[in-house]
């Protein structure tokens, strides 16, 4: 098994500028996180808003620079603060964002959305670019005839498929998915999760999957990293973590996640009945 991405003690500081009445300060959003993901595996990063999970995702996706620590992609150290990554490096890591309504340019046809990465990063001729784009549309479950349509003609789930297709155009080895299904309806969410699984198998992709939803994580992850206030409070294999959560914060997350277990519902209904009987 080859490691696709590895992080050691990744740190990210944000500088908050001061004003007349307030001194400048430094906020440490990511406080030294280490992880690694192998080919064909999924690392889920779980946390609530403000936990630093999206900041970490952007660092892994080579969008933002880190303030400290070491990031290696396929064994090669990379620090975008010091040098611009090569095109080859850029095409290895791609990202899919949460909101499919905001991540596609409304004035760009879907075909152009998919061909743009090839145009910018490769010397592939136009006819071949088009062929690959159409092929990718079919792979993500959309008809190739949709090539000339605009984003507004698609539903949220279809747009997320397009965003995934765009991310796959450069044949990356790592996909960073920042809450890819949280803006979608339950039934559409299931379709997109199925698609992500199929694509992972087909292209042997490594996923870094950012989510706040434990039930989705349980379905898709191999390893889980739980973040709270910039720290990794717990990390381990999915089986281990779900069977025996150790850190109090992880337990709190589990306790807060609503469950649809019939026995639990039966208990709650009985409790409410008793309460109402007591009130009368």
């Amino acid at each position: 098994m080859s490691v696709v991405v590895e992080g050691k003690n990744i740190i990210r500081d944000y500088h908050v500028p001061g004003s007349l009445t307030r001194a400048a300060k430094v906020v440490r959003a990511v406080k030294g996180i280490s992880f690694s993901v192998e080919r064909g595996k999924t690392l889920a990063i779980v946390g609530e808003s403000g936990s630093g999970k999206s900041t970490l995702a952007r660092i892994i996706a080579l969008i933002d620079q880190s303030s400290g620590g070491e990031l290696k992609i396929e064994g090669k150290p990379i620090d975008i603060a010091k040098e611009k990554p090569t095109r080859e490096m850029r095409s290895k890591v791609q990202m899919v964002f949460q909101n499919p309504y905001g991540s596609l340019n409304p004035r760009q046809k879907i075909g152009d959305v998919l061909m743009e990465p090839l145009e910018l990063n490769t010397d592939i001729p136009a006819a071949e670019r088009r062929r690959r784009a159409e092929e990718m549309l079919v792979k993500v479950g959309l008809p190739a005839e949709h090539f000339n349509r605009y984003p507004h003609m698609f539903s949220g789930g279809q747009r997320q498929r397009i965003a995934i297709a765009r991310a796959l155009m450069l044949k990356p080895t790592l996909l960073v998915l920042d809450e890819p299904v949280s803006a979608l309806d339950l039934s559409v969410q299931a379709q997109v999760l199925n698609l992500l699984r199929d694509l992972q198998e087909e292209f042997n992709l490594a996923y870094v999957f950012i989510s706040h939803d434990l039930s989705v994580v349980r379905y898709i992850a191999d390893d889980v990293l739980v973040m709270n206030k910039g720290e990794a409070v717990e990390q381990g294999s999915r089986e281990e973590l779900f069977a025996n959560p150790k850190h109090p914060y992880t337990r709190e997350l589990f306790a807060a996640t609503p469950i649809t277990d019939v026995e639990a519902i039966r208990e709650r209904v009985a409790r409410r009945k008793a309460l109402r009987a007591a009130a009368i």
């Binding site: 039934s187 969410q189 299931a190 039930s215 898709i220």
Partner: peptide, 20 residues
């Protein structure tokens, strides 16, 4: 039934049944 089985926690196999 479709809605309930599309819940990831109710996944039985590798794939989630979808409403469609």
């Amino acid at each position: 039934r479709a809605l309930l089985s599309a819940l990831p926690e109710n996944a039985t196999g590798d794939r989630l049944p979808t409403v469609a």
